[in-house]
Design a protein around this nucleic acid. Structure first.
Lengths: 262, 262
DNA sequence: CGCAGGGTTGAGCGCTCTCAATATAAGTGG
DNA sequence: CCACTTATATTGAGAGCGCTCAACCCTGCG
């Protein structure tokens, strides 16, 4: 029987080879702040970035109510952001994969949520004061900063659309497609991957109970849409997921029967 | 019997007196881009802004897929943004009142959603190219721009929290408190106001069926928490709404009984 | 080997959806 | 100004999806 690596072992492979490179050598620079920036400017940007901040599974990058100081970029691994609600219950409102930036919701002064590593992860820290000063001198950086914040708004709004209307199958299908395409953008397998988040995280994010998430995974497995083995996911019928997510009602049962008409 | 003005008549009163003033004279400048900007800089900003764009109820400010050109500020009245979904069904994802900015989700090039006036409204248009160029020369403007975008992210994330967890009563209570406090910030009555959006808009925004919204209004009326007469709302027991929204379970029935534990 | 955390599955119930009818207000044209 | 149409809102009845509670399984780890 083949040896199966656990979460942290898998992520360490990427970790080691990516550590301590400069922005220009980083495989993620097309997704990150340096995009569309000239060689010289990238060098300047390079100098303000604090590299190699490492987090173990469960560690906090920043906590709810912390003073805002920096924007962070995920170099490897993944994180979730959670809102603290009444009773100590927390709600997951975002997942961040390699190349994605977090902290844009805190520019007003304080972090409204906590960021926790889902696995062994590595992040770059970009002190915001410096970034802001640099942006004022580099129009292309300012532009990229605004674009990235706009993208964050888009992401959040898409989640709102997801949460606002659809049933469990549709939500999970959309979620898997989103994760899958984000992996693809990063050059990973998009049909065969390991989720770094628990069922409970997914449920919290999608507004569903853990049991419902689990049941829906099982349903997809029965329907031969997915192969599921705990966090190892293989997408067997991407079209079906796509049709579910797009709301076309050609998926056997009428998936729209419970969708409100506005 | 007293004569009751309709929506448009009410908003016209504000319209006429606010038209064609410069930013420095605008009562909304504390909420808007000019906040914390020097006199001279405000004058420069003033010159790039196109004022007095007027919209009738139902008119579009921009449409889904339109090329992005400008950020807009609501001067008077109110707008909603809607995502076009499959089947021509639309979902409301934001409401914008006087002093609030919209368009930040389109900086990547195209508007992902449409913006429609809920009543006779007046907006200022801020051409983004100019705004960006100006920001590069005015650190305080750049800062304010980033803050406003961060705030938009906060708003969206709060909606995600709302949609992710709570039942109809809690959602509507949170919604009314949010609207109420935004009115208060603008110097209007916070306990006695007219909603500019329909039940259907509210339902779409909160992820509830129209009928559920209506029923919940009726429930609050029965419980003497609100006085409701179509879109005229009087808040009689703000504390109760607050307790609902905060999730404390001292509100008669156990409101948390249907809230998932994560 | 036993324990803990995460995941799966089952049973039952309740909130909210759907469908439907009616009421009220707003808008339109003669 | 009034009848007509349309949009919006309210209310009722019934059904279903997803939640809660509960038991069990699996995996990893000390």
């Amino acid at each position: 029987m083949a040896y199966i690596m656990n979460r942290d072992e898998r992520s360490k492979i990427i970790n080691l080879q990516e550590l301590k490179v400069s922005c220009s050598d980083c495989s993620l620079h097309q997704l990150c702040l340096p995009k569309m920036i000239s060689k010289e400017d990238m060098h300047t940007l390079n100098n303000i970035i604090v590299r190699g901040k490492s987090l173990k599974r469960g560690e906090l990058l920043f906590n709810f109510n912390d003073t805002f100081r920096s924007i962070y970029v995920v170099r490897s691994g993944s994180l979730k952001t959670v809102y603290a609600k009444e009773d100590g219950i927390e709600q997951v409102i975002g997942f961040y994969l390699a190349g994605e930036l977090l902290g844009f919701d805190a520019i007003n002064g304080y972090h409204p949520c906590s960021a926790k590593a889902l696995e062994t992860s590595n992040v770059c820290e970009v002190p915001f004061e410096h970034l802001e000063a640099l942006s004022a001198r580099m129009p292309s950086l300012q532009h990229q900063l605004l674009r990235l914040m706009s993208k964050e708004i888009n992401t959040d709004q898409n989640v709102m659309v997801l949460l606002g209307k659809k049933n469990a199958e549709v939500r999970l299908a959309s979620y898997l497609l989103s994760i899958s395409s984000r992996y693809q953008q990063r050059g990973f397998f998009s049909q065969d991957f390991y989720l770094s988040m628990s069922r409970s995280d997914i449920g919290s994010y999608l507004g569903l109970a853990v049991e419902t998430v689990s049941r829906t995974f099982s349903l997809f497995q029965e329907q031969d849409v997915l192969m599921v083995e705990r966090r190892h996911i293989i997408i067997k019928d991407r079209d079906y997921l796509q049709r579910l997510a797009n709301g076309s009602d050609e998926c056997g049962a009428d998936v729209n029967k419970n969708v409100r008409e506005y």
